[in-house]
Amino acid sequence: MIGKVNDEFFQKAILPETGAMTPEVVVGPSMGVDAAILKIGDQFMAIAEDPIFPGPTTSPEDFGWITVHIGASDVAVMGIKPQFMTYSLLIPPDTNEEYIARLVRSISETARNLGISIVGGHTGFYGAVNVPTIGGITVWGMGREYITPAGARVGDAVLITKGAAIEAAALLGSELGDSLRSAGITEELVGQASQRIKEMTVVEDALLAAACGGVHAMHDATEGGLARGLWEVAEASGVGLRIERSQVMVPPDVKAICSHFQLNPYEVISEGTLVLTVDPDKVGDVLKSYEMAGIPAAVIGKVVPQGEGRRWLEVDGSEQDLLPPPVDHFWEVFFGALSQG
């Protein structure tokens, strides 16, 4: 198995093992929660942790950008601006210093552009490491209020940004471009997909929405894609969903690449797709804010009572259960294709 541990093992073996209980922990570890919330004085701290590794052809500049944005996104979805970070860089013994310097410079420049201060970390060579790896990036920030994935309310509109399978298309387009072109996918579509590397962030998406008010829940659709992201918000909030599949944006390049690899675009990794539930009276403000920022967004459904279930509404009028995929098939496709050259 590649990727996150399965839900059953997480709930049985990991979730109960969280050390000492302290009153400062307002929001602790939970299924689908992107960051912890601690009460520090009269403010709330959002803090998150992520590992990051590059693809075989990822430049140190893109690796640095992705590192910061993935870590910062998990704080931003809590409605709090990322302010500080540390990271551990683990590198193979034969890594040249120029690569390391470029990567560290990119991390610093990306953090600076987001207003994040790097306040510590670790860098070292390790024989057990095969590729330069961020063993962990920790990002945190302080605010007077916070949002969690558990805040969705019956009657809320459900919105997403950018569309489905953003990360899957970006990584497959970047790493397997020659294979895709050989299969007849146009240079334009492959180029569009590879450029989505810089869409693998929800920092701006989340902070813009939070500033509008009326946002009750936010979540980044990472492993398991949009389907899992939606389900996790509903599960954490104890609500049902009615999601119109036809309203979910699946850009042409994403559709072409997912079709080629026989991937369901609704169920594969999609870092960069923000799922949010919003008071109906504030939907217009959120959409206008996104339009002004050039961020594609759409209303795809609504929050309903839990007893009404979680359903995909299809164009032909039929309904399907909205369930979290047990496995994100992106990983087996990605690493399988890489191993075949």
Rank of each mutant, 00 (worst) to 15 (best):
G155A: 13
G155M: 11
D156M: 11
D156A: 11
D156K: 12
D156C: 14
D156E: 12
D156G: 13
D156Q: 12
A157H: 08
A157K: 14
A157I: 06
V158S: 07
V158F: 02
V158W: 00
V158H: 04
L159G: 08
L159I: 15
L159V: 14
I160P: 04
I160Y: 00
T161P: 13
T161V: 15
T161L: 12
T161S: 14
T161N: 11
K162D: 01
K162T: 12
K162R: 15
K162A: 02
K162V: 11
K162H: 14
G163L: 10
G163V: 12
G163Y: 01
G163M: 08
G163C: 10
G163F: 02
A164E: 09
A164C: 08
A164H: 06
A164Y: 01
A164K: 04
A165P: 13
A165E: 05
A165W: 03
A165L: 05
I166F: 02
I166C: 06
I166S: 06
E167G: 09
E167C: 08
E167H: 11
E167V: 00
E167T: 15
E167Y: 00
E167N: 11
A168I: 08
A168M: 05
A168K: 02
A169M: 10
A169H: 06
A169T: 14
A169E: 07
A170S: 12
A170E: 02
A170Q: 05
A170T: 11
A170H: 04
L171T: 03
L171I: 10
L172D: 02
L172N: 03
L172M: 15
L172S: 05
L172I: 14
L172R: 03
G173I: 10
G173L: 09
G173H: 08
G173A: 13
G173R: 06
S174A: 12
S174N: 11
S174V: 00
S174Y: 10
S174P: 03
E175M: 09
E175L: 06
E175P: 02
E175I: 06
L176V: 08
L176R: 05
L176A: 03
L176G: 03
L176P: 01
L176E: 00
G177L: 07
G177M: 05
G177T: 11
G177R: 11
D178N: 14
D178W: 03
D178C: 02
D178G: 12
D178Y: 06
S179G: 15
S179A: 09
S179R: 13
S179I: 10
L180V: 10
L180K: 05
L180D: 01
L180M: 13
L180R: 04
L180P: 03
L180C: 08
R181Q: 13
R181A: 04
R181M: 11
R181V: 07
R181K: 15
R181L: 08
R181Y: 00
R181G: 07
R181I: 04
S182Q: 15
S182N: 15
S182Y: 07
S182E: 15
A183N: 11
A183Q: 13
A183E: 13
A183Y: 09
A183V: 12
A183I: 12
A183K: 11
A183L: 10
A183C: 13
G184A: 07
G184H: 09
G184Q: 09
G184K: 09
G184N: 09
G184M: 05
I185M: 07
I185C: 07
I185A: 07
I185D: 04
I185G: 05
I185K: 06
T186Q: 01
T186F: 00
T186P: 03
T186M: 01
T186R: 05
